[in-house]
Design a protein around this nucleic acid. Structure first.
Lengths: 223, 223
DNA sequence: TCAAGCCGATTGTCTGACATTCTTGCAATC
DNA sequence: GATTGCAAGAATGTCAGACAATCGGCTTGA
């Protein structure tokens, strides 16, 4: 028997359900950065009690998806470009490392999964649904990170990418960004498929750098 | 006026106070890994109500300092060596990068702070107080990370180091580990003081690798 | 126009409650 | 003797309601 196979089924508690829903709401831009989240409103909208909601909010606070100022309550933080830059830098470190490791150790089966997710992104890229683009792209990274052999790398990366979902959504709407993103991701995929660690690292680095540049453009232009 | 100077004073709420106290309790080994945390007991010990405690627990859960299984409640996770290895690897990436950047940009004033914290560790190293050793060493890293120019790097690093505090405490108790740790940290300090990025990276990498090895030894020997 | 003060809205925190689920000990059965 | 089944107790998940402290905005007065 595998030593650490986690067979325990996790009942979905109200708290967890709430965290997931709110997280998704933030990703999809339902809550704009800077907007306040009023407890009583959320309670009625979600149909839950205040204690449960507050527990969920504390979880999101610890993930840095919201911030809670005492006596003012929770709000979606407006990410400064300075912090966004910092996140992109760390994301680059993690993603480059993960891509490199992934190229050396991914299984054929997972490679097919990666290809599938690339196709999914390709389809999304040809549409105008920027949320779908962000989500499918996240799946693509997720598979790479899940196969880098380091669960912590994956976990930290997921947390960071979540925090810049706002920027990612906006920059995906940029003219041609989705298509060039697709090209970059295809290059990453090819390198990993070829088992070429160096190429995977290089392609991955390029991709993050361009994503960061696109985010900067969208931020400067759009307000 | 600085654009983003945060002048808001944060009233210390019961929730935050509780998070800090529990975090410290975990660091100091008051709660052994694997042990369950019973809400009613903690409530009476801390003198707070259950909702406040539960909010605090959710925060700690999101920091991965505790885990909460539905209908079983919170407990301190027993870190497997596999996960610990993963954490050490990511910590290495972050700390090496931070040390390198720090060497290029630290201010003379902060450098003095770094030297001070090194002295503090030196003193702790000659004692037998392994908690003090862990704490002062954490201060040392903290200054490096705070001067690397990337707040996210700092934040993520702090979170990871927190999670391996148990291992760090145990390995510091190893014969001679504190002294060799001191030597390694001094080398890091010297490199940063000299503004030598490459040396700082190298010394930092060595330090983390040795810390990891020491953790492995203490784990294998001690049970 | 601007400052001071008041009022509603919101949050921080507590108490108490109850259904559900887990744990544990004991009895019954094979 | 080992395993199964069950029942009591303990712990958690969730809710409702309450109240003081604080914040933000609006009115009022100078």
């Amino acid at each position: 028997m595998p030593p650490d196979l986690n067979l325990r089924i996790s009942p979905r508690t109200v708290q967890r359900e709430t965290v997931d829903k709110l997280r998704l709401a933030i990703f999809s831009g339902l809550f704009q950065p800077g907007s306040r989240l009023v407890e009583s409103q959320l309670c009625t909208q979600l149909g839950i009690s205040r204690p449960s909601l507050r527990e969920a909010l504390r979880s999101l606070e610890a993930e840095h998806l919201i911030e809670i100022v005492p006596n003012r309550g929770p709000s979606v933080p407006a990410l400064s470009w300075e912090v966004a830059t910092a996140i992109y830098e760390v994301r680059e470190m993690l993603e480059v490392e993960a891509a490199g490791r992934c190229a050396l150790r991914i299984s054929p089966e997972q490679l097919r999964e990666l290809e599938k997710s690339l196709s999914a992104f390709e389809e999304a890229a040809s549409s105008n649904d920027s949320l779908a683009q962000v989500m499918t792209a996240a799946d693509f990274y997720s598979i790479i990170l899940a196969n880098c052999g380091n669960p912590i790398l994956e976990e930290v990366h997921r947390g960071l990418v979540a925090r810049i979902s706002f920027f990612r959504g906006r920059s995906m709407s940029l003219e041609g960004r989705a298509q060039s993103s697709l090209a970059e991701m295809r290059e990453i995929f090819e390198s990993i498929a070829a088992g070429d660690e160096k190429a995977a690292r290089k392609a991955s680095k390029q991709h993050v750098l361009k994503a960061k540049a696109a985010a900067k453009v969208s931020m400067d232009s759009g307000i």
